[in-house]
Structure formats: C-alpha cells, structure tokens
C-alpha cells in the first residue's frame, strides 16, 4: 500500500506560468488578511505542511488490491467539455500490495506488490525498502517467474529512476519516499478542488535529490483536511509540464484518509494511467518479516499468510 501512498507523497511542484503567478499575486494582495477583514489565521509554513503530508498517518500497515490501467489518450470535446479518452483499449494490470512502516534499523518502510493479471505477467513481483536516511535511494527487487529468479532493480543513485512501474505512466521515482529536507517549498496560493480547500505548494528538489529526480519542479495541491495530495503537476528540468497526478475518491478508512483513485497524465507522451484501489485493509496485523524476498518469490507462502490476515 505504501507504494500507492508514497505516490501520494511524491508530488512536488513546479514552475507556474506567468499567468498563474500573476493570479497568485492578485490573490495575495486581495487576501482578507492583508485587508484586515478577518481574524488573522496562522498559516503553517509550506515546509510544515509538506512535513505533515510526508509523515501523514497512512496506517502502520496496509493490504490493498489494485487495478492499474494505461493507455494512449486523445482529447474529445463534447458540450464544451473536454475529455481525455483512451484511443485504444487500455492495458489492465491487477495486483496486490502489502506495506508496513518499520521506522527502525535505518529502514523506513517496506512494500511488496504481486501481479495477478494479465496472465502473461502473473506472479511478477516487486519489493521495495525505503530508508530513513535522507537522500538514500530505495532498494528494489523484482521476481521474474519465468526465470524463477529474484533480480535486484539497479538504478543510478545519482540519476532519476525513470523506469516505468508495471508499464504505467508511474515511474519508480514516483513511488520513492521523500523527506521534508529533500526540497525547498513555496506556498503559492490556497484554492479549492471540488469544494476541498487546499494549499498549493511549489517544491524544488535540493542537493542530492535534485540529481536523482527527473522533475525540475512540482506543484502540489494539499488537502487542508486530510493532508492528502489531491493534485500534482510535475515539470521537467526545462520547465515544461510533464505529468499530472490527480487523486480522488478520498475516504476515511479506520480513521485514516485514503485516496482510492489516482490518475496520472503524461502530457508529453499523451498517455494516461489510472490506479484504482479495488479494496483496502488499513492496519492489518502482520509481521514486518512477511515483506521479504521469501514472499516475493513464493506466492504460495504470501497467499497463505494473507489468508491469515483476511481471517483476522
């Protein structure tokens, strides 16, 4: 699950165009606080907001059944509304994910995903270990059932992990965990997304993170209510819009806010992906040892352990 929830956390921001910037200035100068019309409400600093977002309570553990769709899209206009529509049947992947927060022995969190469909990829597994140390890249492994082998996914620690996550528009760097000190932040504005008030924060990667990230800047819309990132625009290093992540179907499950649908639009490739949580268990009881290379290569063992979770 943290693979999904980490996606939520990834969203960093970017260079806004001049128009938006002007608008921000306009809003700023017309804000009630400047005019003294309302009581001054203390706005947390953008770093504090993002710290809360990164460290948001996502549950200590999770067990999720996901469906991932990816396709080339075309823009269809109807009744003055534009719609992004798959121009060919989408590729559909179904996979299960489990995740657990560790927070000890330098390990931050562990997650494991296993593909159930399509048949050609059944049994393909992916495991990730995130570290507490700032700037340290996650370790990733894949299990290739045809070869009966576990292979370490080796990326460039000094460069971005832009490889595709299960063939979608989500890249491995998108599912890496971030620390608040990995970026500098700027609060651009406050606005609503579908009646949900948000902070709009621009994030620029710093130091080592700047080298390991393919995005130059990102802009995130953070829900004031749940600290979930409802939308993120990622800009490439030349300043052009590369990807937009949108999260919706936000629900409170076991007291924890979860976005059950995420759409990723790759503007430069005209492709989009939808990650949908078909079902989700928050804080199921299982040992951190379950997320291991043993479980990655042995679906049977993993299934039997998950059955126990299900039975509880």
């Amino acid at each position: 699950m943290s693979s999904i929830i980490h996606l939520i956390q990834t969203f960093n921001l970017n260079k806004l165009c001049f128009l938006s910037f002007s608008f921000c200035l306009f809003v700023f100068f017309n804000s009630p606080s400047l005019k003294g019309e309302e009581k001054k409400v203390e706005v947390p600093s953008p770093k504090e907001i993002m710290k809360k977002t990164f460290n948001r309570n996502e549950g200590k553990s999770s067990y999720v059944s996901n469906i991932l769709l990816s396709c080339q899209f075309e823009i269809v206009k109807k009744n003055n509304k534009s719609k992004k529509k798959c121009s060919s049947p989408p590729r559909i992947k179904e996979f299960k994910s489990i995740a657990i927060e560790i927070q000890k022995d330098s390990i931050d969190a562990k997650s494991l995903s296993l593909i159930k469909k399509p048949a050609s990829e059944k049994g393909l597994g992916f495991m990730q270990v995130d570290y507490i140390e700032e700037g340290k890249s996650s370790d990733q492994w894949m299990f290739l059932p045809a070869l009966k082998k576990t292979k370490r996914v080796v990326g460039d620690e000094d460069g971005p992990k832009t490889g595709s996550f299960f063939g979608s528009e989500i890249s491995y760097e998108d599912i890496e965990k971030h620390h608040e000190n990995d970026f500098t932040y700027k609060l651009i504005k406050e606005e609503k997304i579908k009646e949900t008030p948000t902070w709009v924060i621009e994030m620029t990667p710093t130091g080592k993170k700047a080298k390991t990230r393919s995005y130059g800047k990102s802009t995130s819309w953070i829900s004031k209510r749940s600290y979930i990132v409802l939308k993120t625009e990622h800009y490439d290093k030349r300043g052009f819009l590369l990807k937009t992540f949108k999260q919706s179907n936000v629900e409170k499950i076991n007291g924890i806010w979860i976005a059950k649908r995420m759409i990723v639009i790759n503007h430069q490739k005209s492709r989009m992906s939808m990650l949908k949580l078909k079902s989700v268990l928050i804080n199921p009881q299982f040992s951190e040892d379950l997320i291991s290379l043993r479980a990655l290569k042995d679906e049977t063992f993993l299934e039997s352990e998950l059955q126990k979770i299900h039975g509880k």
Binding site: L69, K83, K84, C86, I92, K246, S248, I263, M274
Partner: peptide, 10 residues
C-alpha cells in the same frame, strides 16, 4: 479537467 474515459467500468 477531471473527465477521463478509460473505457473501463470502475
């Protein structure tokens, strides 16, 4: 902007 059609019943 939220209009998407994946041709999939979700």
């Amino acid at each position: 902007e939220d209009e998407f059609d994946f041709g999939f019943e979700d």
